[in-house]
Design a protein around this nucleic acid. Structure first.
Lengths: 149, 149
DNA sequence: TTAGTTTGGTAAGATTATCTGACTACTTTA
DNA sequence: TAAAGTAGTCAGATAATCTTACCAAACTAA
């Protein structure tokens, strides 16, 4: 077997992917099977008071056309709603709607569950170190520093 | 500002995405701009002596049809070649070709560069802790444990 | 205060990446 | 040696993304 250390990109991707799969499986089981990964990546970036399409696109690193397409789907599925932005007549705010709000704590619970499993495997200390290192890493790898759920 | 701790999935994704972007930008600049992220995710899983399509599909967690589609593109672009598998007449081995082999050290250099930047920001110790935590995490989140470059 | 520039968003059309289901050809096993 | 399993392809559908082009509202500066 090859024991070359794995590149850090892949090392980051593997658990990310595992987390995503777990959340999607649980959501599907809970009756939210009609949300796709691409939609979720936009959804989870909606700010508490609502976000503009352009901001969502920028944060998710997709074009505003793609973001619009995904928000249309989320709106049709009842997860979000659009409201005029009182501060700018050109813009509209994408907000989490009632059905979307019901999904949020469910997803959060699965994330917590997976994190607990990881902590059980790594130990409290290493888990804390992991979170700290990633949080610091974000300072230089995330152009959008706003905290998100 | 909201100071809720970010969920670990997103915390993993942010630097992963940053690493990927850097690598792709550098590859494009070096004349390998015709490779897509999806193709790269398959390519980087090719074993030294070549891999079967089915194995690549399994490791990348896509269907063999998708893997075949991406390998077709990689083959047309000259990054890989297919050879009969001497041990099984049904199978063929996907191998890195000359052009592909030229791309590998280039990508590795960018990865090393980004990792060095991260280490400069985190410090040697936290960087080591990060790598160790991720390596251990892989034990419970990666169904395919074979080391990859 | 109005003309030019920027910003928020949509429209149309193409391309890429992915899936499911069905199939062929070879291999393994009972 | 017949049945079951495995490697891969084919066909057709859908999802997610892009580029280019556009419109309307809002800023900005002469």
């Amino acid at each position: 077997m090859d024991d070359t250390p794995l590149n850090l990109g892949l090392l980051l991707f593997i658990p990310y992917r595992a987390m995503e799969s777990r959340v999607f499986a649980a959501m599907a089981e809970a009756g939210f099977g009609d949300v796709t990964p691409a939609q979720a990546r936009v959804f989870q970036r909606i700010a508490p008071g609502g976000s503009r399409l352009t901001d969502l696109a920028e944060q998710a690193q997709i074009t505003k056309q793609s973001a619009g397409f995904l928000v249309d789907q989320l709106e049709r599925a009842g997860f979000v709603e659009r409201a005029p932005d009182p501060t700018d007549a050109r813009a509209r705010l994408v907000r989490i709607s009632e059905r979307g709000a019901r999904a949020v704590p469910l997803a959060a619970a699965v994330v917590a569950e997976v994190e607990a499993e990881w902590e059980a495997h790594l130990g409290k200390q290493r888990m804390r170190q992991l979170r700290e290192a990633l949080t610091r890493l974000r300072e230089i790898t995330d152009p959008y520093q706003r905290a998100m759920q």
